[in-house]
Design a protein around this nucleic acid. Structure first.
Lengths: 386, 386
DNA sequence: GGACTTAGTAAACTACGTAGCAATATCTAG
DNA sequence: CTAGATATTGCTACGTAGTTTACTAAGTCC
C-alpha cells in the first residue's frame, strides 16, 4: 500500500495509459467514446490518442460512410500488430508453437509430432525448428517477438528448470531458457502445463467468469493448476497444486484403473485403452463402467483436497480425458458432494489440446502488459531481458 | 487493469494520500523527510501535510530542543487517535474484546470467561457487556469506533453467519452482525478464528516476512487459515482451508490420540489431558510419546495436503497446542518431508491466545484503510454501514 | 560570525477542463 | 429537389489547479 507522489507529467502518462487501455479489446473507437470510457474531456482524449498514434501504439482510421447523423468521426484502434508473442507447448508426443499479436489474435500456429523417447537436445532442436518455421511463415524475425512462454510437464522452478520428475526423458538436465536466450532478447518464461491450461481456460475457455478456479488436467497423468483471485498461483517454490504427490490421494493409480479394465484390446496404447474403456462404458459394458467408477473415485479424493483447501468457484475438468466428460462430470460431482463442505461448479473444458499453448500465449501477453503497459508507458519495441 | 482518467484535483487527492501513508507507522516526521519519502517537492509536501492537519488526520509537534545542526524542524505525526477499532474473539470458554487506535496501538483489552454451554443469546449478551466495559474504561462511545471484526469458531459466510458446524451451542441460529448493527454505524465483519489467527501471525507474529502462509490452529479442534500473496483467502464460499473435513485427513481424530493415551488422570478435561500427555512425553513416558507421535502423524496428512496444494513459504503451528511445539515441530517436519515435494519452513506461534482478537483488530484496520484511505481520502470520521 | 538546515513565498511550467466556433454529415419541410 | 435545422466532430483559446524551481528569511550549533 505504499503510494508515491505524482506530478503533472506522471498524470499525463497515466492518462495516456488510461486511453490505451480503453482502446484495447474494443472495435475502433471515436474520440468521444474514448472520452466517455476514460472519464477525460474530449480535447484531452484527443491529444492523448494522437500522441499514441505518433508513438506507434495506435492507428487512425479515416471516416468512411457514416451510418448516423452528424459529422462522421475519425476512429482510432490499438495497433495490435506492433508486437507479437510466442506460446510454446513442449509435450511428450508433440510440439506446438503459436504466435499471436498484442490483442491475442492468432497469427500463426504449427504442430510437429515429437518422439516420446527423444532426449532434451533433440527435443529442443525440434522446438527450434518449429519456431523457425512459424516465424518464417509469419514473415517475422526473433526481434519482433516481445515475450516467449513455454509449457512443459512437471513442476518448474523460477529459472525454468524442471525440478522433480517428468515424463520427458532426461528433461531435468534441460535448460530451455538458456537454450533460447541467444536467439531472443525478450523475456522467456517456462511454466508447468497444468498451470498454463488453467490460464487458458480463464482466457478463452469455460472459466472466463471466475476468479477462483481449480483446473484439472486429467489424462494418463493427472495434474492441477490453480487460479486464485484471478492470478495464477505458483506457490513459493513453484509446486502449488501438486496434490497428486500425497499418498492418500491416489492420482498416480487412478488412470491405471482404466488400462487395467478387462476387455481392453491387447497391445493398445494407454491413451487408446482409456478411450476404449470410456466408449465401452458409454455403451453399457459393466466392467468398463466399474473401471470408470473406480477412476472417478480415486480422482475425487484429490479434487476434494483441492476444493476443501481453496473453496473455488469452479472446477474445470480438462486434459485428454475431458472428451469423456459426459461420463465423468456427474459421478465426480456426486463423489465431491460426499467429501466437500460446499461443492463448486463443475465444468468440462472445451479447449482442445491447444490449451497449454494458449495459456502460454496469455502469460506472455501478461508479461508484455506489465512491462510495457503497466505503470509506465514505454516505447512500442521489444522489451529486453527477462 | 481498467485504468481511469485523472485530473489535477484527483492528483492532489492522491498526493495527500501519499503523504498520509508516508506519515503512518513512522516517528513524527519533518516536511523534508516526508518530501523524500513521497517523492514530492518540499513545498508540495508542506501544503499537503498542513491540509491534513486542518482536516484532522495529522498533528503538529512544535520543535523543541533540537539535537542536530540547523533550524529545528517542525514535526508532523499521524493522528492515530482519530479513530479506533474493535477486535472481538467469541470463544467457547472466553470472550476477548480488544480496542486499538488507527496505528494498531492497543488501548484497552478485556477478557471474560464464558460458559461453554451458553446459548447464542447469553453469549451475545456477554459480548455486549464486555464491549460496554471496554468502551467505558477507554472513555469512548460506540460512535468513536470505525470498524468491528468478530472471530468465531467454524466456517462463516459473507453475512457473518456460521454455516456448517461449530462447538458454540446453537450458534448457527446466531446473527452477530444483526445483533450489533443497532449499536454501531460502522462496518461489522465476522470471520473464522483460524483465518484471523493467521492474519495476526503475519501482523505481529512469526510470519511477518512471508506472503504465502499456512496457519495451523492446533488444539482440541484443528483448523487452518490461509494467506496467499499477502491476502487472507476466504474462498468463494468462505470455507477455504477446511481440509479437516476430508475423511482421508483425520483431523477430527488426531487430538483423540492424546486424550486416549493410557495414564491420563481420570476426570481431566480434554485440554488438561492433552497438556498432561505432552508433559509426560517430554519426561520420557513411552505411551505418551506414542500418543504424540500418532497425533502428529494424523495431523501431518492434512498439513501435507495444504502444503502440496499451496506450496507456502511458511507453516505456522499455532493454537493451544503450540505451547508444546518443542515436541511437535521436528517430528512434524519429518512427516511432512515424507509427503511433500518441498517442505516449507515450520515455525511455532509465539502469540498467546490473543491471536484471534489480534487478527480481528488487523482486519478491522484493513477495513478502515480501504474505506477511508484507499483511493479517496475521506474525512476522519466513522465510516457508515458495512 | 559562518555553516547548515528549515520555513515560507513568488514566479514559471505543465496538464486538464470548459467554452466556443467552424466543418461535415443527415434529416425534414416545402 | 433544395434549403434550413440538427447533430456530431475537430480544433483553438482561455481559465484553473497543482507542482517545481528559485529565492529569501529564520533559527541553531561550532
Amino acid at each position: 500500500m505504499a503510494m508515491s507522489g505524482t506530478d503533472p507529467s506522471r498524470m499525463r502518462e497515466m492518462n495516456q495509459l488510461s486511453v490505451l487501455w480503453a482502446l484495447r479489446g474494443t472495435p475502433p473507437s471515436t474520440v468521444t467514446e474514448l472520452s466517455g470510457r476514460t472519464g477525460l474531456s474530449r480535447p484531452a482524449a484527443d491529444v492523448l490518442v494522437q500522441q499514441l498514434v505518433t508513438d506507434g501504439w495506435a492507428e487512425v482510421e479515416e471516416p468512411g460512410a457514416s451510418s448516423t447523423v452528424g459529422r462522421p468521426a475519425r476512429r482510432y484502434r490499438f495497433r495490435a500488430t506492433a508486437g507479437h508473442v510466442l506460446g510454446i507447448d513442449i509435450g511428450v508426443h508433440k510440439i506446438l508453437v503459436m504466435l499471436c499479436d498484442l490483442e491475442g489474435n492468432l497469427v500463426q500456429s504449427l504442430r510437429r509430432p515429437a518422439d516420446p523417447q527423444a532426449g532434451p537436445d533433440a527435443r529442443l532442436a525440434s522446438v527450434d525448428q518449429t519456431i523457425d518455421d512459424v516465424l518464417h511463415k509469419a514473415g517475422m524475425a526473433p526481434a519482433d517477438i516481445w515475450a516467449v512462454t513455454i509449457g512443459v510437464t512437471g513442476p518448474v522452478d523460477e529459472n525454468g528448470r524442471t525440478i522433480v520428475s517428468t515424463p520427458l526423458p532426461g528433461w531435468r538436465e534441460a535448460d530451455p531458457i538458456a537454450h533460447l536466450r541467444p536467439r531472443f532478447t525478450c523475456p522467456i518464461r517456462v511454466e508447468n502445463d497444468c498451470k498454463l491450461a488453467a490460464v487458458a481456460e480463464r482466457w478463452k475457455g469455460v472459466a472466463q467468469d471466475a476468479d477462483d478456479i481449480v483446473y484439472l488436467l486429467a489424462g494418463l497423468r493427472t495434474g492441477a493448476g490453480l487460479i486464485i483471485d484471478g492470478t495464477l498461483r505458483r506457490g513459493h517454490g513453484g509446486v502449488a497444486g501438486e496434490i497428486g504427490a500425497l499418498k492418500a490421494v491416489r492420482w498416480l493409480n487412478a488412470p491405471a484403473h482404466l488400462s487395467a479394465c478387462p476387455g481392453v484390446p491387447s497391445g493398445a496404447k494407454p491413451g487408446d485403452a482409456a478411450a476404449w474403456v470410456f466408449q465401452a462404458a458409454r455403451e453399457g459394458d459393466s466392467a468398463a463402467k466399474t473401471a470408470v467408477q473406480r477412476y472417478i473415485r480415486d480422482l475425487a479424493v484429490g479434487v476434494a483436497a483441492l476444493v476443501l483447501t481453496l473453496d473455488p468457484q469452479i472446477v474445470v475438468y480438462g486434459g485428454g480425458f475431458s472428451r469423456s466428460a459426459d461420463l465423468v462430470l456427474d459421478p465426480l460431482r456426486r463423489e465431491l458432494a460426499k467429501h466437500c463442505l460446499r461443492v463448486p461448479e463443475l465444468r468440462a473444458s472445451t479447449l482442445s489440446d491447444e490449451s497449454v499453448a494458449l495459456g502460454a500465449l496469455r502469460l506472455a501477453l501478461d508479461q508484455v502488459d506489465t512491462t510495457l503497459l503497466g505503470s509506465r508507458l514505454a516505447a512500442p519495441t521489444a522489451p529486453q531481458f527477462s
